[in-house]
């Protein structure tokens, strides 16, 4: 029995209704975000897809492009709790996860767990590469497990839990680049581009005056979780799934179907987690497109944000200034 098998109790009409509600909610949230965030529709869509899939996003872009504003707006539109942590070299794991403090209660001295900023729905980990690896790994472990263990006690995080980490591509001095194993835990890696001329003007219009757009909460945590459940029902044909596997395997230079660019510029290909991310995101894509099956186009669309941080370029690739996106586009073209 396939993993996408629907429960026997559901009817086609119910599914259709839920799918339409899915699209409606998504469009509402997107529309609400668009009230404040100018442009960056693709970034917004990808971030929302990652949230629905229960994944985390690594956002790369120069300061001032509205990363914090984006997360803030999303949290308000989704009516989710939001916290921001500025990562610095002296940041300790306990500063993120929380720590036990000694309290006197009813005349007794007891240890009480003081929750850190990770106990929220949306966490903005600003400039994550400036913290030490120890602190980074504490956050990344929390991202994966969605719980915190301190002094032998495990504290579950409230769902949905979404981390949006940012990196600054410039000013690399004194930073601690994320290791590959930790990068793999991010669902997507997105690049925030500099706004266009018109977008710039619009940003100034929206933020320069006294009137600041009001962001209404158009969805809640339950909606997000329900949307996440629905996307699991989307069907995928075996042939399309084979295509997905071929795409991911083709990122490995030792694979016989790997294109020349991969053989030349890639040192390590994607893990199976990359394929899982593409499949989950493709299902959301299919639902947004009004389909109940995943298409190759969905896989092609999601392959780049899901795999760009999961492939490691070789020395030659780095030396020639190759970007993972270029290599991945060649992979898709070769497998197609």
């Amino acid at each position: 029995m396939p993993a996408t098998e629907a429960p026997a109790s559901a009817t086609p009409a119910e599914f259709k209704e839920r799918a339409e509600a899915f699209r409606e909610t998504f469009e509402k949230v997107r529309g609400e975000i668009a009230k404040f965030i100018v442009g960056q529709e693709k970034i917004v869509e990808d971030v929302l897809i990652a949230i629905i899939c229960g994944g985390h996003v690594l956002l790369e872009g120069v300061p001032g492009l509205g990363k914090t504003a984006l997360v803030n707006t999303i949290s308000r539109a989704l009516h989710l709790h939001f916290r921001r942590v500025q990562f610095t070299p002296d940041l300790l794991p306990a500063d993120i996860t929380g720590t036990q403090i000694l309290l006197e209660r009813d005349g007794k001295k007891v240890f009480d767990f003081q929750q850190g900023p990770v106990f929220t729905n949306i966490l903005l980990a600003d400039e994550i590469n400036r913290a030490t690896p120890k602190t980074q790994s504490a956050l990344l472990e929390t991202m994966q497990e969605k719980c915190v263990t301190v002094a032998g006690q495990t504290h579950s995080l409230e769902l949905p839990f979404f981390v949006l980490a940012t990196q600054n591509p410039i000013e690399q001095d004194g930073t601690y680049p994320l290791p590959e194993a930790q990068l793999d835990r991010f669902f997507f890696k997105l690049f925030v581009e500099v706004p266009t001329h018109d977008e710039f003007a619009e940003i100034l219009n929206r933020t320069g005056g006294s009137h600041v757009p009001e962001i209404a909460a158009v969805a809640g945590a339950d909606d997000i979780l329900s949307m996440g459940e629905l996307r699991k029902e989307v069907l995928i044909d075996d042939e399309v799934q084979q295509y997905l596997v071929r795409v991911v395997l083709a990122t490995h230079p030792e694979n016989e179907h790997a294109p020349d660019a991969v053989k030349k510029y890639v040192r390590h290909g994607s893990s199976p987690r990359g394929a899982q991310a593409i499949l989950a995101a493709s299902r959301v894509c299919a639902l947004l497109d009004g389909r109940f099956h995943v298409a190759r186009e969905d896989i092609d669309r999601m392959a780049v944000p899901a795999l760009r941080h999961r492939i490691i370029l070789s020395f030659e690739g780095e030396a020639e200034g190759k970007r993972p996106d270029e290599v991945l586009r060649e992979v898709v073209a070769a497998v197609r």
Partner: peptide
């Protein structure tokens, strides 16, 4: 021969 609500919905769509 896969059967179910989602398959039927996919066929109808």
């Amino acid at each position: 021969r896969r059967e179910g609500a989602v398959y039927a919905l996919q066929g109808e769509a």
